[in-house]
Design a protein around this nucleic acid. Structure first.
Lengths: 234, 234
DNA sequence: TGCTGTGAAAGCGTTCACAGCG
DNA sequence: CGCTGTGAACGCTTTCACAGCA
């Protein structure tokens, strides 16, 4: 298990964690953190699965992509498993995040608690608005987005968050990539074009709400249908 | 095509759109809106797919879950297709959204532009902090979260957004459900427990960043491996 | 005996090639 | 002839049952 595909350079590089598992591993990590804070030393897959809101075979399968870190008949040691997941996700490195756009969203992100911890550090906060530039937000001062390239270089940022209006998102995305950033998390409600070597993830609130609306509408519709059927039945 | 499972009460209820398609349909809708604003009347699946960042067979498959709204040899009429997707997603109803938590994130959401349009209306903004209660945010005044039940009832909210700290999220989630809300979008970094009839969706920035970190780490690792190989090769 | 780790089967989602109309 | 609509094949996820250790 947990073989590397090449002679392996120093650290163990795991062979491909499926995207669906990857997303859940971050949830397990958070649940383990909570257990650790509570002083819990061991968990079974059932308990951890419960805390993470999944079923236990799925959790065990997910963990099996990393290796065998449990003890049969006993369970998992909380701190050890937490470390192993962190390592597999690349959270032992220190990621330096530049937040582009210092509106309410950008400020919310800059102040996000689970952000500073877990290997992420916000090293820059940028905005185009003269009224906002120079403001202090937490430990940071808002830099002019005009100087994006310089700021990225000086702060050695290696990740970026885009929290800007849709109409300027592509332009700023291009400039980030030009500056050497290859990992971008975008909150802008537009489809961004990026080259293959750049990792782009999107968070889209409009999409989320619309999906909720779809389910709510269906629930309502089938409720109405049920009532109609009941009326006809009696 | 597009059959309904029961005698069909008034509007056509489509038989189950796959989750993955559903998420993409919201993107197509946005792209169609942009085309509409530009005065474009017709699109081919190739063009729309390009705008939405997917390949065209996938787009056509997605649209086929709704019905056959295109013209072979020609393409799709922008406004008609837009209406059909809106109808299928339940965006013809008016959704009344209560935002719980008026920190930076809550305020950002309250002011979100693509929010007011497309059938969503923010009808309440609540917070626990005395300093924030009573503040005006856009057209709204922040209400005390203590009166959540009353506010939900008075405003006839039928959806809620949770933008509160993790430690109070479950409690407020329970109160929302108690108040009759069955669709909740949570930004709190915790696993929330909800009954089956409630639709809960989560947006988790920590998860997104960690997924980016994983890919960035892998890219780096394989780069290092490549360099090592190059050195050994020469 | 108890709980982990995992192959094998079932269920979804995506891709593709092409049939079907305008 | 062009572009849509779709069945069938493929690949990825999830589920399950149970083999494997402590």
């Amino acid at each position: 298990m947990s073989t590397s595909e090449e002679p392996a350079p120093a650290g163990v590089v795991h062979r491909h964690i499926p995207p669906a598992s990857l997303a859940r591993l971050t949830i397990y990590l958070r649940a383990l953190g909570a257990l650790l804070a509570d002083g819990v030393e061991r968990v079974s897959s059932d308990e951890l699965a419960e805390a993470a809101g999944v079923n236990s075979p799925k959790l065990r399968k997910d963990l099996s992509y990393l290796g065998s870190y449990g003890t049969r008949g006993v369970g998992y040691e909380v701190s050890y498993l937490s470390d192993q997941i962190s390592a597999a996700l690349g959270l032992t490195r220190n990621w330096r995040v530049a937040i582009v756009g210092a509106g309410h969203l950008g400020k919310a992100l800059a102040g996000y608690p689970g952000f500073g911890s877990r290997g992420f550090e916000v090293v820059a906060l940028l905005d185009a608005d003269q009224m906002v530039i120079g403001q202090e937000v937490g430990w940071l001062r808002v830099s002019p987005v005009k100087d994006l390239e310089g700021v990225v270089q000086r702060t050695r940022a290696n990740m970026a968050v885009l929290s800007v209006p849709a109409d300027v998102a592509q332009e700023l995305c291009d400039r980030l990539i030009e500056s050497g950033i290859t990992s971008i998390l975008s909150f802008a409600p537009v489809v961004l074009q990026v080259p293959d070597h750049v990792q782009l993830r999107k968070v889209d609130m409009a999409t989320e709400l619309q999906i909720l609306a779809y389910h709510a509408q269906r629930a309502q519709a089938s409720e109405i249908a049920a009532k109609a059927r009941a009326r006809l039945g009696t």
